[in-house]
Computed example of a mutant assay.
Amino acid sequence: MRVAVRRGLALLILAAATALGHALYTGALVVPERFNPWAPLNVMAEPNFLTGYKLSRSRADPERCLAALARTGMAYEPVPDRSTGVGCGFTHAVRLRDAGLRIGAPLTLSCPMALSFFMWEKHALQPAAQRHFGQRITGLQHFGSYACRNINTGEGSAPGAGDRPRSRSRHATADALDIAGFTLQNGRRITVLQDWKDAGTDAEARMLGEAHDGACRFFTGVLGPAYNAVHRDHFHLETGGYSMCR
């Protein structure tokens, strides 16, 4: 009897959930956009419990991704799809010229990477700078994005990997960016190499720690100095690979 009751209750909950999902999806039930999982990603809205899901959906669909990217206000231009070698090349990429802060030479990034970069910069990096210094970050120092190369293990590539696609770095598909430091509004420089500390108490270390942790919310993979010596001087940010936050 109890088994039958539990099964009946489970079926009732499933039916209710299915009906609710269908109503939301078709628009029969109107809920605020920020609480609707099928609503487009609002890049300007304060992140909530659905932001990660919406960002993931946008990154997985080129049309959604480009539509969301168009709402960021960043200056960029589409880059023709290209293949530059075994496991190297990109599709639906953009050349980022202006991200609201100085980035030096334009960056070639996949659409998912550019979108994640904006979300991180707006909703994690800048708030961290405001909390600890009361000012914006106006400049970014980086080690580049697209490069047809293998995973760096300290000797430059994965041992014995050759040119197999599975040994390629996410840089090889424009899905990664290495960030070395930041410049504040007053010209003050903060670098990963000099200011990162695992248990730092100064403002620079705290800001870098929050920037790293915030990146884990908006990128698929994040590696920093705590991961290994190869990353002692930069944050490696990527999309499309394995989920990691180190």
Rank of each mutant, 00 (worst) to 15 (best):
P47Q: 01
G52M: 07
N150L: 08
H234R: 06
A16M: 15
V31I: 12
Y242G: 14
A172N: 06
R2Q: 11
T91K: 08
R7K: 13
A199P: 10
S169E: 00
V222E: 03
I103F: 06
F143Y: 15
R57Y: 08
R7V: 15
G224W: 02
Y25E: 09
R166S: 06
G139A: 10
G187V: 06
Y146P: 07
I151V: 12
V5A: 13
V43E: 07
P47D: 00
R166E: 02
E46A: 12
G144M: 04
T239L: 00
F118V: 11
E63T: 12
L29N: 04
L109C: 13
P159C: 00
G154S: 10
Q185H: 11
R102V: 05
G240K: 01
R57W: 05
R71P: 13
E155M: 09
F117Q: 07
S157N: 08
E121D: 14
L9K: 14
G73L: 07
A129W: 02
F90L: 10
A180D: 09
C65L: 05
M1W: 13
R164M: 13
A172F: 05
K122Q: 15
R189N: 01
A70L: 02
G241P: 13
S83M: 15
M74E: 10
S58K: 08
A45D: 15
D163M: 14
T138Q: 10
T51F: 01
P225G: 01
A68I: 04
L55V: 04
V3G: 10
L193A: 14
T138W: 05
Y227P: 06
L29D: 05
T26H: 02
K122D: 13
A176D: 05
W120I: 00
A105Y: 11
L115C: 12
V31W: 04
E77P: 04
N48V: 09
A93S: 09
F218A: 05
G156D: 06
F90Q: 02
A60P: 12
W38S: 06
Q126A: 06
N228S: 03
H231C: 08
M119E: 09
T201E: 09
G100L: 01
R131V: 12
D163K: 14
L237F: 12
D81W: 10
R206H: 12
A16V: 15
G209M: 05
P78T: 00
V31M: 06
P127G: 00
T220E: 12
H212L: 14
A28T: 12
L107R: 04
M44V: 07
P40K: 08
G160V: 00
G240E: 01
T183E: 08
T108K: 14
V79A: 10
L208Y: 10
M74A: 08
Q194D: 15
V5F: 11
R97T: 03
L208T: 08
R57P: 12
R217H: 14
H236R: 02
R164K: 14
R188Q: 11
A19I: 11
V192H: 01
R164W: 13
G214R: 09
A15R: 05
